[in-house]
Design a protein around this nucleic acid. Sequence first.
DNA 1: CAGCATCCTCCCGGATACTG
DNA 2: CAGTATCCGGGAGGATGCTG
Lengths: 119, 119
Amino acid sequence: MAKARHSRLDCDPGCSVEAAISLIDGKWKCVILYHLQDGTKRFNELRRKIPAVTQRMLTNQLRELELDGLVDRVVYAQVPPKVEYSLSERGRSLLPIIDALKNWGDENIALFNKRLEAA
Amino acid sequence: MAKARHSRLDCDPGCSVEAAISLIDGKWKCVILYHLQDGTKRFNELRRKIPAVTQRMLTNQLRELELDGLVDRVVYAQVPPKVEYSLSERGRSLLPIIDALKNWGDENIALFNKRLEAA
DNA sequence: CAGCATCCTCCCGGATACTG
DNA sequence: CAGTATCCGGGAGGATGCTG
């Protein structure tokens, strides 16, 4: 992905495109959004759904998604702690696009195989 | 952005989503695709359209887009050199999605302003 | 359970100089 | 004109250990 979170904004015409991408960029955000599609999930629940992610990154990505208003985070004041994550209204508005990306990816999966064998 | 070009593929469910994103990720790819929308362009023509890009990065991104089959590159055997870039069939098939991203970005531009002032 | 803090590595991407 | 070559800093992201 790209790197600097804000450096994406210093171009002009594709600006809003880049801005939108910057929200779903980050190695795990799409996967997280994908898994929140079918309802609220707790932190470790997400970890189990995405085995390859580290706690650190899951926390980071969830915080960014929360700051960007794509995900809602609810903390229950109890011991042991309980935190629930769900898609916000705006997060849900992104789902069609994510879906379109998924479909495009599926239809063009040959690309990635080709790229893998080239590596 | 993400970083490693292939590391995106080592997840399961959002896999094709991530794969698709990896193609349009990279700091300038969307802008390049955007500018190729209205026809074939030469190298320096693209440079002028995207003032902030360096030759190095423009070359890199164009090479990757070419390897990924999203852009066609035609070299004319003449002096001085002439190289033309244009969208491939597959590249054009991505345009609707890029457009959707742009629209979403436009509608949610407030987000980015908020993020900027937070930084 | 749901994190935060720290260290460390890798590689993206900028700057600069050179070439067929 | 359309690149390549090289050097370099910074930040993403992995591994590990600790906490309310």
